[in-house]
Simulated assay, not measured.
Amino acid sequence: MYKKAYGIIETLAPLHVGATAGEETGNLNLIFRDQFTQTGIIPGSSIRGRFRAEMRQFLGETDTNQWYGSEAEMGKPDSTSESFVKFEYASIVWLPVFCPGQPMVWVTCPRLLKRYQRIAGISNPIPAVYTGSKTLNALNINGKNTLFFNFGFLTIDKTEDLKPWFPNGQELPGVVVGDDEISMIHDMALYRQSRVALDKKEKKVSKGAFFNTEALPEETFLVFAIAIRPTTQTWEPFMGDEEAEVYLGGLESIGFGHCKITLKGVK
């Protein structure tokens, strides 16, 4: 029987975890997405690799291999070992979106909240679609609370206390939208940046050196599940602390990937 725990990721800078496409698709650096909601995710392998690197820095390779498994060695059969800690992918809980007059509104949907509910063990019923938080500052138009986004407007049917659904314990201005609407809002909220590489001899762009990058915006909240095999030792990935600031994904050299990870239920 595995011990259940989970982690909360709060992005402190734009977060890019994905792949780079070739020139035939316009050099698009796209993030990984969930296949159903089409919202950004962080694969479990990326989280495991970051945790492994953090432990290797302080405790060395032997202790690291014990917790995260030994890598395969060429010419040595059965050189791999099972890890004591398993990581699921991280999915979005709340995504910040620009909204005139707010200026930010955090958006989610029932499917994303359902996964968070399962992982975090929340007993509250999932809020209905078009439910807003008590801290939401919507405009009253014809007797209805209304939010305006770049794509149009959204009517809030009711407001309630959504504090239990915010991982940081603060009830931010938030709204629950439909599962069929979250992908459109998600694409509108993504951080996008165009980058170029200049020619070494002239002030012009090198051939094929134009890149478009997308990333999850800062102040996005994500959740991932952790399973720990029974052992007499205690897993302490952050040297006894329950939270740490780390870098995830790529493009760290230009300021991407700065995150705060908080562990729940590990001890």
Rank of each mutant, 00 (worst) to 15 (best):
K3A: 10
A5W: 02
E10N: 09
A19K: 14
A21G: 12
G22R: 12
E23Y: 05
L28D: 11
Q35I: 06
P43E: 06
P43H: 05
S46I: 02
R50I: 13
F51S: 04
E54Q: 10
N65K: 10
S70I: 08
S70V: 05
S79R: 10
S81R: 08
E82M: 09
V85E: 02
L95A: 02
R118L: 15
I122R: 03
V129M: 05
S133E: 02
K134W: 06
A138N: 09
I141F: 11
N142L: 09
T146P: 02
G152W: 06
G152D: 08
F153E: 15
T159S: 15
E160F: 01
K163L: 11
K163V: 07
G178N: 08
D179N: 15
D180R: 14
D180L: 04
I182Y: 03
S183M: 13
D187C: 09
A197V: 14
K200A: 15
E202V: 13
K207M: 07
T213H: 08
L216T: 04
V223I: 13
A227H: 12
A227G: 10
T231I: 08
Q233H: 13
W235Y: 07
F238K: 05
M239F: 09
D241P: 01
A244G: 06
Y247I: 06
L248A: 06
G249P: 01
L251N: 15
G255R: 01
F256W: 02
H258A: 10
